[in-house]
Design a protein around this nucleic acid. Structure first.
Lengths: 205, 205
DNA sequence: AGCTTTGTTAACTATTTGGTTAAACCATAT
DNA sequence: ATATGGTTTAACCAAATAGTTAACAAAGCT
Protein backbone atom coordinates (compact mmCIF):
# COMPACT_ATOMS: atom_id res chain seq x y z
CA UNK A 1 0.00 0.00 0.00
CA UNK A 2 1.48 3.34 -0.98
CA UNK A 3 2.03 6.28 1.33
CA UNK A 4 -0.71 8.39 -0.14
CA UNK A 5 -3.19 5.80 1.02
CA UNK A 6 -1.66 5.15 4.42
CA UNK A 7 -1.54 8.86 5.07
CA UNK A 8 -5.17 9.48 4.42
CA UNK A 9 -7.69 9.06 7.16
CA UNK A 10 -8.87 5.45 7.26
CA UNK A 11 -12.47 6.37 7.95
CA UNK A 12 -12.45 8.63 4.92
CA UNK A 13 -10.91 5.93 2.77
CA UNK A 14 -13.59 3.49 3.85
CA UNK A 15 -16.35 5.94 3.06
CA UNK A 16 -14.97 6.58 -0.39
CA UNK A 17 -14.57 2.88 -1.09
CA UNK A 18 -18.04 2.15 0.23
CA UNK A 19 -19.54 4.87 -1.90
CA UNK A 20 -17.85 3.51 -4.98
CA UNK A 21 -19.03 -0.05 -4.37
CA UNK A 22 -22.52 0.73 -3.09
CA UNK A 23 -23.31 3.16 -5.88
CA UNK A 24 -22.14 0.67 -8.51
CA UNK A 25 -23.64 -2.48 -7.06
CA UNK A 26 -26.46 -1.27 -4.85
CA UNK A 27 -27.08 -2.27 -1.23
CA UNK A 28 -27.93 -5.87 -2.09
CA UNK A 29 -25.16 -6.40 -4.62
CA UNK A 30 -22.34 -4.80 -2.64
CA UNK A 31 -19.95 -7.07 -0.73
CA UNK A 32 -18.22 -5.98 2.45
CA UNK A 33 -15.09 -7.76 1.21
CA UNK A 34 -15.10 -5.68 -1.96
CA UNK A 35 -15.38 -2.49 0.06
CA UNK A 36 -12.50 -3.60 2.26
CA UNK A 37 -10.39 -4.44 -0.78
CA UNK A 38 -11.24 -1.16 -2.44
CA UNK A 39 -10.18 0.66 0.72
CA UNK A 40 -7.04 -1.46 1.01
CA UNK A 41 -7.85 -2.70 4.50
CA UNK A 42 -9.00 -5.75 6.39
CA UNK A 43 -12.66 -6.66 6.47
CA UNK A 44 -12.71 -6.60 10.26
CA UNK A 45 -11.65 -2.99 10.23
CA UNK A 46 -14.80 -2.16 8.36
CA UNK A 47 -16.83 -3.44 11.27
CA UNK A 48 -14.58 -1.59 13.66
CA UNK A 49 -15.45 1.74 12.08
CA UNK A 50 -19.03 0.95 11.07
CA UNK A 51 -20.81 -1.71 13.06
CA UNK A 52 -22.50 -3.40 10.12
CA UNK A 53 -23.38 -3.22 6.48
CA UNK A 54 -26.68 -1.48 7.06
CA UNK A 55 -25.09 1.31 9.12
CA UNK A 56 -22.41 1.84 6.51
CA UNK A 57 -24.95 1.83 3.74
CA UNK A 58 -27.17 4.32 5.48
CA UNK A 59 -24.22 6.65 5.84
CA UNK A 60 -23.48 6.45 2.13
CA UNK A 61 -27.10 6.74 1.13
CA UNK A 62 -27.64 9.73 3.38
CA UNK A 63 -24.59 11.42 1.97
CA UNK A 64 -25.73 10.69 -1.58
CA UNK A 65 -29.24 11.93 -1.00
CA UNK A 66 -27.94 15.00 0.79
CA UNK A 67 -25.96 15.83 -2.29
CA UNK A 68 -28.98 15.44 -4.54
CA UNK A 69 -31.93 16.89 -2.69
CA UNK A 70 -31.22 19.91 -0.50
CA UNK A 71 -29.72 21.80 -3.40
CA UNK A 72 -32.96 21.29 -5.29
CA UNK A 73 -34.79 23.00 -2.48
CA UNK A 74 -32.47 25.98 -2.45
CA UNK A 75 -32.90 26.39 -6.18
CA UNK A 76 -36.65 25.95 -6.04
CA UNK A 77 -37.15 28.38 -3.22
CA UNK A 78 -34.79 31.11 -4.44
CA UNK A 79 -36.18 34.57 -5.14
CA UNK A 80 -35.62 34.68 -8.88
CA UNK A 81 -37.66 35.25 -12.02
CA UNK A 82 -39.04 31.97 -13.37
CA UNK A 83 -36.89 31.72 -16.47
CA UNK A 84 -33.74 32.56 -14.60
CA UNK A 85 -34.62 29.95 -12.02
CA UNK A 86 -35.03 27.33 -14.72
CA UNK A 87 -31.70 28.25 -16.23
CA UNK A 88 -29.94 28.11 -12.91
CA UNK A 89 -31.52 24.83 -11.98
CA UNK A 90 -30.31 23.18 -15.16
CA UNK A 91 -26.89 24.68 -14.94
CA UNK A 92 -26.18 23.97 -11.30
CA UNK A 93 -27.92 20.65 -11.11
CA UNK A 94 -26.16 19.27 -14.14
CA UNK A 95 -22.89 20.34 -12.56
CA UNK A 96 -23.72 18.48 -9.38
CA UNK A 97 -24.76 15.29 -11.09
CA UNK A 98 -22.02 15.47 -13.67
CA UNK A 99 -19.46 14.85 -10.95
CA UNK A 100 -21.58 11.99 -9.59
CA UNK A 101 -23.32 10.60 -12.65
CA UNK A 102 -24.47 7.37 -11.02
CA UNK A 103 -26.10 8.98 -8.01
CA UNK A 104 -29.62 9.52 -9.39
CA UNK A 105 -30.08 5.94 -10.53
CA UNK A 106 -28.61 4.67 -7.28
CA UNK A 107 -30.83 6.77 -5.07
CA UNK A 108 -34.02 6.27 -7.05
CA UNK A 109 -33.40 2.57 -7.22
CA UNK A 110 -32.88 2.15 -3.50
CA UNK A 111 -35.93 4.26 -2.78
CA UNK A 112 -37.86 2.07 -5.14
CA UNK A 113 -36.72 -1.12 -3.44
CA UNK A 114 -37.77 0.10 -0.03
CA UNK A 115 -40.03 3.13 -0.30
CA UNK A 116 -41.52 3.12 3.20
CA UNK A 117 -38.15 2.88 4.87
CA UNK A 118 -36.48 5.77 3.11
CA UNK A 119 -39.34 8.10 2.49
CA UNK A 120 -40.55 7.95 6.06
CA UNK A 121 -37.28 7.64 7.92
CA UNK A 122 -35.07 9.79 5.77
CA UNK A 123 -37.23 12.55 4.38
CA UNK A 124 -37.36 15.02 7.22
CA UNK A 125 -36.96 18.80 7.09
CA UNK A 126 -34.44 20.09 4.63
CA UNK A 127 -34.12 16.70 2.93
CA UNK A 128 -37.69 16.71 1.73
CA UNK A 129 -37.99 18.53 -1.57
CA UNK A 130 -40.51 21.29 -1.30
CA UNK A 131 -41.55 22.53 -4.73
CA UNK A 132 -44.58 24.57 -3.62
CA UNK A 133 -42.79 27.88 -4.04
CA UNK A 134 -41.82 27.09 -7.61
CA UNK A 135 -45.27 25.68 -8.36
CA UNK A 136 -46.92 28.87 -7.12
CA UNK A 137 -44.54 30.95 -9.15
CA UNK A 138 -45.46 29.03 -12.30
CA UNK A 139 -49.19 29.33 -11.55
CA UNK A 140 -48.79 33.10 -11.15
CA UNK A 141 -47.04 33.50 -14.49
CA UNK A 142 -49.75 31.46 -16.15
CA UNK A 143 -52.47 33.60 -14.60
CA UNK A 144 -50.65 36.76 -15.61
CA UNK A 145 -50.52 35.41 -19.14
CA UNK A 146 -46.77 35.81 -19.44
CA UNK A 147 -46.41 32.11 -20.28
CA UNK A 148 -48.62 29.56 -22.00
CA UNK A 149 -51.16 27.81 -19.82
CA UNK A 150 -49.62 24.71 -18.29
CA UNK A 151 -50.25 22.68 -15.16
CA UNK A 152 -47.33 23.69 -12.90
CA UNK A 153 -46.60 20.11 -11.89
CA UNK A 154 -46.20 19.15 -15.54
CA UNK A 155 -43.67 21.89 -16.11
CA UNK A 156 -41.77 20.92 -12.99
CA UNK A 157 -41.64 17.27 -13.97
CA UNK A 158 -40.59 18.14 -17.51
CA UNK A 159 -37.74 20.24 -16.19
CA UNK A 160 -36.50 17.58 -13.79
CA UNK A 161 -36.97 14.76 -16.29
CA UNK A 162 -34.93 16.36 -19.03
CA UNK A 163 -32.20 17.29 -16.58
CA UNK A 164 -31.79 14.01 -14.77
CA UNK A 165 -32.89 11.23 -17.11
CA UNK A 166 -29.88 11.33 -19.45
CA UNK A 167 -27.63 10.42 -16.54
CA UNK A 168 -29.73 7.40 -15.70
CA UNK A 169 -29.63 6.22 -19.29
CA UNK A 170 -25.93 6.98 -19.64
CA UNK A 171 -24.71 3.44 -20.47
CA UNK A 172 -27.51 3.00 -22.97
CA UNK A 173 -26.88 6.33 -24.63
CA UNK A 174 -23.17 5.71 -24.89
CA UNK A 175 -23.70 2.28 -26.38
CA UNK A 176 -26.57 3.22 -28.61
CA UNK A 177 -25.40 6.54 -29.97
CA UNK A 178 -21.91 5.07 -30.14
CA UNK A 179 -20.33 7.85 -28.13
CA UNK A 180 -17.50 7.87 -25.62
CA UNK A 181 -17.64 9.02 -22.01
CA UNK A 182 -16.03 12.28 -23.08
CA UNK A 183 -18.58 12.86 -25.78
CA UNK A 184 -21.31 12.10 -23.29
CA UNK A 185 -19.94 14.83 -21.08
CA UNK A 186 -19.94 17.27 -23.98
CA UNK A 187 -23.50 16.35 -24.76
CA UNK A 188 -24.58 16.89 -21.18
CA UNK A 189 -22.66 20.14 -20.94
CA UNK A 190 -24.43 21.53 -23.95
CA UNK A 191 -27.80 20.60 -22.49
CA UNK A 192 -27.25 23.16 -19.71
CA UNK A 193 -28.30 25.75 -22.26
CA UNK A 194 -30.42 23.57 -24.50
CA UNK A 195 -32.96 22.50 -21.88
CA UNK A 196 -33.81 26.02 -20.67
CA UNK A 197 -34.03 27.23 -24.26
CA UNK A 198 -36.37 24.37 -25.08
CA UNK A 199 -38.59 25.02 -22.09
CA UNK A 200 -38.69 28.76 -22.55
CA UNK A 201 -39.54 28.24 -26.19
CA UNK A 202 -42.38 25.94 -25.20
CA UNK A 203 -43.71 28.51 -22.77
CA UNK A 204 -43.97 31.38 -25.29
CA UNK A 205 -47.60 32.54 -25.24
CA UNK B 1 -53.65 -22.68 -2.12
CA UNK B 2 -56.78 -21.80 -4.03
CA UNK B 3 -57.96 -23.40 -7.23
CA UNK B 4 -57.13 -20.44 -9.41
CA UNK B 5 -53.48 -20.94 -8.55
CA UNK B 6 -53.38 -24.72 -8.83
CA UNK B 7 -55.10 -24.56 -12.17
CA UNK B 8 -52.61 -22.25 -13.79
CA UNK B 9 -49.55 -23.60 -15.46
CA UNK B 10 -46.74 -23.90 -12.92
CA UNK B 11 -44.13 -22.59 -15.28
CA UNK B 12 -46.25 -19.54 -15.91
CA UNK B 13 -46.81 -19.03 -12.19
CA UNK B 14 -43.08 -19.18 -11.62
CA UNK B 15 -42.39 -16.65 -14.33
CA UNK B 16 -44.94 -14.25 -12.91
CA UNK B 17 -43.59 -14.64 -9.41
CA UNK B 18 -40.02 -14.25 -10.62
CA UNK B 19 -40.90 -11.13 -12.52
CA UNK B 20 -42.54 -9.63 -9.47
CA UNK B 21 -39.59 -10.36 -7.19
CA UNK B 22 -36.79 -9.57 -9.66
CA UNK B 23 -38.33 -6.32 -10.78
CA UNK B 24 -38.87 -5.26 -7.20
CA UNK B 25 -35.55 -6.37 -5.71
CA UNK B 26 -33.19 -6.61 -8.67
CA UNK B 27 -31.02 -9.57 -9.56
CA UNK B 28 -28.78 -9.22 -6.52
CA UNK B 29 -31.54 -8.54 -4.03
CA UNK B 30 -33.95 -11.23 -5.17
CA UNK B 31 -34.06 -14.50 -3.23
CA UNK B 32 -34.99 -17.79 -4.86
CA UNK B 33 -36.96 -18.62 -1.72
CA UNK B 34 -39.03 -15.47 -2.12
CA UNK B 35 -39.81 -16.36 -5.71
CA UNK B 36 -40.84 -19.86 -4.64
CA UNK B 37 -43.06 -18.46 -1.89
CA UNK B 38 -44.60 -15.93 -4.25
CA UNK B 39 -45.37 -18.74 -6.68
CA UNK B 40 -46.69 -20.92 -3.86
CA UNK B 41 -44.30 -23.77 -4.58
CA UNK B 42 -41.21 -25.48 -3.26
CA UNK B 43 -37.80 -24.00 -3.88
CA UNK B 44 -36.58 -27.19 -5.54
CA UNK B 45 -39.30 -26.91 -8.11
CA UNK B 46 -37.82 -23.64 -9.20
CA UNK B 47 -34.62 -25.42 -10.10
CA UNK B 48 -36.59 -28.15 -11.78
CA UNK B 49 -38.11 -25.67 -14.22
CA UNK B 50 -35.19 -23.27 -14.50
CA UNK B 51 -31.74 -24.64 -13.84
CA UNK B 52 -30.45 -21.71 -11.84
CA UNK B 53 -31.01 -18.14 -10.74
CA UNK B 54 -29.08 -16.65 -13.63
CA UNK B 55 -31.10 -18.53 -16.24
CA UNK B 56 -34.35 -17.51 -14.61
CA UNK B 57 -33.21 -13.93 -14.35
CA UNK B 58 -32.14 -13.77 -17.95
CA UNK B 59 -35.55 -15.01 -18.98
CA UNK B 60 -37.25 -12.27 -16.98
CA UNK B 61 -34.85 -9.58 -18.09
CA UNK B 62 -35.19 -10.54 -21.73
CA UNK B 63 -38.94 -10.48 -21.46
CA UNK B 64 -38.82 -7.11 -19.75
CA UNK B 65 -36.45 -5.58 -22.27
CA UNK B 66 -38.43 -7.06 -25.14
CA UNK B 67 -41.46 -5.28 -23.82
CA UNK B 68 -39.62 -1.98 -23.61
CA UNK B 69 -37.37 -1.72 -26.63
CA UNK B 70 -38.70 -3.25 -29.86
CA UNK B 71 -41.84 -1.16 -29.67
CA UNK B 72 -39.66 1.94 -29.56
CA UNK B 73 -38.10 0.90 -32.82
CA UNK B 74 -41.42 0.37 -34.54
CA UNK B 75 -42.57 3.79 -33.44
CA UNK B 76 -39.30 5.46 -34.40
CA UNK B 77 -39.17 3.89 -37.83
CA UNK B 78 -42.84 4.35 -38.76
CA UNK B 79 -43.71 6.40 -41.84
CA UNK B 80 -45.49 9.25 -40.14
CA UNK B 81 -45.22 13.03 -39.97
CA UNK B 82 -42.95 14.11 -37.12
CA UNK B 83 -45.60 15.59 -34.85
CA UNK B 84 -47.87 12.62 -35.27
CA UNK B 85 -44.98 10.33 -34.49
CA UNK B 86 -44.27 12.21 -31.30
CA UNK B 87 -47.89 12.00 -30.28
CA UNK B 88 -48.09 8.33 -30.96
CA UNK B 89 -44.86 7.61 -29.16
CA UNK B 90 -46.08 9.30 -25.99
CA UNK B 91 -49.48 7.72 -26.17
CA UNK B 92 -48.44 4.17 -26.89
CA UNK B 93 -45.33 4.14 -24.80
CA UNK B 94 -47.06 5.51 -21.75
CA UNK B 95 -49.65 2.78 -22.18
CA UNK B 96 -46.97 0.11 -22.26
CA UNK B 97 -45.12 1.37 -19.23
CA UNK B 98 -48.27 2.21 -17.33
CA UNK B 99 -49.05 -1.48 -17.07
CA UNK B 100 -45.46 -2.18 -15.99
CA UNK B 101 -44.43 0.95 -14.14
CA UNK B 102 -41.32 -0.54 -12.53
CA UNK B 103 -39.82 -1.91 -15.71
CA UNK B 104 -37.75 1.11 -16.80
CA UNK B 105 -35.98 1.53 -13.49
CA UNK B 106 -35.40 -2.21 -13.30
CA UNK B 107 -33.94 -2.49 -16.77
CA UNK B 108 -31.82 0.64 -16.62
CA UNK B 109 -30.49 -0.35 -13.24
CA UNK B 110 -29.44 -3.82 -14.30
CA UNK B 111 -27.85 -2.44 -17.44
CA UNK B 112 -26.01 0.03 -15.27
CA UNK B 113 -24.70 -2.63 -12.94
CA UNK B 114 -23.36 -4.73 -15.78
CA UNK B 115 -23.19 -2.71 -19.00
CA UNK B 116 -20.83 -4.91 -21.02
CA UNK B 117 -22.84 -8.03 -20.34
CA UNK B 118 -26.21 -6.74 -21.39
CA UNK B 119 -25.32 -4.29 -24.08
CA UNK B 120 -23.10 -6.74 -25.91
CA UNK B 121 -24.92 -9.99 -25.29
CA UNK B 122 -28.48 -8.81 -25.39
CA UNK B 123 -28.60 -5.95 -27.86
CA UNK B 124 -28.74 -7.70 -31.17
CA UNK B 125 -30.96 -6.95 -34.15
CA UNK B 126 -34.47 -5.88 -33.31
CA UNK B 127 -33.63 -5.37 -29.65
CA UNK B 128 -31.19 -2.59 -30.35
CA UNK B 129 -33.00 0.75 -30.55
CA UNK B 130 -32.26 2.39 -33.85
CA UNK B 131 -33.25 6.05 -33.78
CA UNK B 132 -31.47 7.11 -36.97
CA UNK B 133 -34.69 7.30 -38.96
CA UNK B 134 -36.30 9.63 -36.45
CA UNK B 135 -33.12 11.66 -36.13
CA UNK B 136 -32.96 12.16 -39.89
CA UNK B 137 -36.59 13.11 -39.94
CA UNK B 138 -35.99 15.79 -37.32
CA UNK B 139 -32.94 17.09 -39.16
CA UNK B 140 -34.99 17.39 -42.34
CA UNK B 141 -37.74 19.39 -40.67
CA UNK B 142 -35.15 21.69 -39.18
CA UNK B 143 -33.51 22.24 -42.55
CA UNK B 144 -36.88 22.85 -44.15
CA UNK B 145 -37.54 25.44 -41.47
CA UNK B 146 -40.83 23.89 -40.37
CA UNK B 147 -39.54 23.61 -36.81
CA UNK B 148 -37.10 25.61 -34.72
CA UNK B 149 -33.44 24.66 -35.06
CA UNK B 150 -32.57 21.92 -32.57
CA UNK B 151 -30.00 19.18 -32.44
CA UNK B 152 -32.03 16.04 -33.24
CA UNK B 153 -30.47 14.05 -30.42
CA UNK B 154 -31.55 16.68 -27.94
CA UNK B 155 -35.12 16.50 -29.10
CA UNK B 156 -35.08 12.72 -28.97
CA UNK B 157 -33.70 12.68 -25.44
CA UNK B 158 -36.19 15.31 -24.32
CA UNK B 159 -39.04 13.23 -25.64
CA UNK B 160 -37.87 10.01 -24.03
CA UNK B 161 -36.94 11.71 -20.75
CA UNK B 162 -40.31 13.34 -20.22
CA UNK B 163 -42.10 10.13 -21.11
CA UNK B 164 -40.15 7.68 -18.99
CA UNK B 165 -38.68 9.58 -16.06
CA UNK B 166 -41.92 10.06 -14.11
CA UNK B 167 -42.24 6.28 -13.80
CA UNK B 168 -38.78 5.98 -12.37
CA UNK B 169 -39.50 8.66 -9.81
CA UNK B 170 -42.93 7.26 -9.04
CA UNK B 171 -42.40 6.53 -5.33
CA UNK B 172 -40.84 9.95 -4.85
CA UNK B 173 -43.58 11.74 -6.69
CA UNK B 174 -46.32 9.95 -4.78
CA UNK B 175 -44.67 10.71 -1.47
CA UNK B 176 -43.64 14.24 -2.29
CA UNK B 177 -46.71 15.52 -4.06
CA UNK B 178 -48.80 13.61 -1.56
CA UNK B 179 -50.74 11.72 -4.20
CA UNK B 180 -52.12 8.19 -4.33
CA UNK B 181 -51.33 5.53 -6.90
CA UNK B 182 -54.62 6.34 -8.59
CA UNK B 183 -53.80 10.00 -8.80
CA UNK B 184 -50.40 9.12 -10.17
CA UNK B 185 -52.12 7.19 -12.93
CA UNK B 186 -54.34 10.15 -13.71
CA UNK B 187 -51.33 12.39 -13.83
CA UNK B 188 -49.52 10.06 -16.21
CA UNK B 189 -52.60 9.61 -18.35
CA UNK B 190 -52.93 13.34 -18.84
CA UNK B 191 -49.29 13.59 -19.85
CA UNK B 192 -50.04 11.57 -22.98
CA UNK B 193 -51.41 14.81 -24.41
CA UNK B 194 -49.39 17.24 -22.35
CA UNK B 195 -45.93 16.09 -23.47
CA UNK B 196 -46.60 16.29 -27.21
CA UNK B 197 -48.28 19.66 -26.77
CA UNK B 198 -45.27 20.89 -24.82
CA UNK B 199 -42.80 19.65 -27.41
CA UNK B 200 -44.75 20.93 -30.38
CA UNK B 201 -45.07 24.27 -28.69
CA UNK B 202 -41.33 24.35 -28.15
CA UNK B 203 -40.72 23.57 -31.82
CA UNK B 204 -42.82 26.41 -33.21
CA UNK B 205 -40.52 28.44 -35.48
C1' DA C 1 10.11 3.50 30.97
C1' DG C 2 5.41 1.51 31.74
C1' DC C 3 0.49 1.82 31.03
C1' DT C 4 -3.69 2.82 28.39
C1' DT C 5 -6.18 3.70 24.34
C1' DT C 6 -6.75 3.28 19.54
C1' DG C 7 -5.99 0.97 15.17
C1' DT C 8 -5.19 -3.33 12.55
C1' DT C 9 -4.90 -8.12 11.38
C1' DA C 10 -5.60 -13.30 10.71
C1' DA C 11 -8.42 -16.70 11.85
C1' DC C 12 -12.77 -18.07 13.14
C1' DT C 13 -18.09 -18.45 13.60
C1' DA C 14 -22.86 -18.14 12.24
C1' DT C 15 -26.11 -17.45 8.92
C1' DT C 16 -27.89 -16.93 4.63
C1' DT C 17 -28.67 -18.72 0.28
C1' DG C 18 -28.16 -21.11 -4.23
C1' DG C 19 -28.35 -25.56 -5.54
C1' DT C 20 -28.89 -31.03 -5.08
C1' DT C 21 -30.86 -35.56 -3.89
C1' DA C 22 -33.82 -39.10 -3.07
C1' DA C 23 -38.11 -40.19 -2.10
C1' DA C 24 -43.15 -39.38 -2.48
C1' DC C 25 -47.02 -38.14 -5.30
C1' DC C 26 -50.15 -38.46 -9.06
C1' DA C 27 -52.03 -38.97 -13.44
C1' DT C 28 -52.34 -42.01 -17.38
C1' DA C 29 -51.53 -45.95 -20.30
C1' DT C 30 -51.03 -50.89 -20.37
C1' DA D 1 -53.70 -53.29 -10.27
C1' DT D 2 -49.49 -51.68 -11.55
C1' DA D 3 -45.82 -49.86 -14.24
C1' DT D 4 -44.32 -45.47 -16.06
C1' DG D 5 -43.08 -40.72 -16.48
C1' DG D 6 -43.57 -36.32 -15.29
C1' DT D 7 -44.24 -33.36 -11.10
C1' DT D 8 -43.51 -31.96 -6.28
C1' DT D 9 -41.60 -32.12 -1.72
C1' DA D 10 -38.59 -32.37 2.63
C1' DA D 11 -34.20 -32.70 3.87
C1' DC D 12 -29.71 -31.88 2.93
C1' DC D 13 -25.14 -29.78 1.17
C1' DA D 14 -21.68 -26.45 -0.08
C1' DA D 15 -20.34 -21.96 -1.05
C1' DA D 16 -20.62 -17.27 -0.05
C1' DT D 17 -20.84 -13.69 3.08
C1' DA D 18 -21.79 -10.81 7.30
C1' DG D 19 -20.01 -10.41 11.57
C1' DT D 20 -16.76 -11.77 15.89
C1' DT D 21 -12.64 -12.70 18.58
C1' DA D 22 -8.30 -12.54 20.28
C1' DA D 23 -3.86 -11.28 19.62
C1' DC D 24 -0.86 -7.79 18.28
C1' DA D 25 1.03 -3.08 16.87
C1' DA D 26 1.20 1.92 17.21
C1' DA D 27 0.47 6.05 19.32
C1' DG D 28 -0.40 8.85 23.45
C1' DC D 29 -0.11 9.72 28.15
C1' DT D 30 1.87 9.48 33.27
Amino acid sequence: MDKSQKDTNTEQRILEAAKKVFVRKGMAGARMQDIADEAGINKALLHYYFRNKEKLFEMIFTEAASKLFPRINQLFTAELPLFEKIERFCHEYIDIVKSNPYLPLFVLNEINQNPEHFLQKFWKGEHKPNPTHLLNQIAEEVQRGTIRPIHPVNLLINLVSMTIFPFMAKPMLEANLGISADQFNDFIEQRKKEIPAFIISALRP
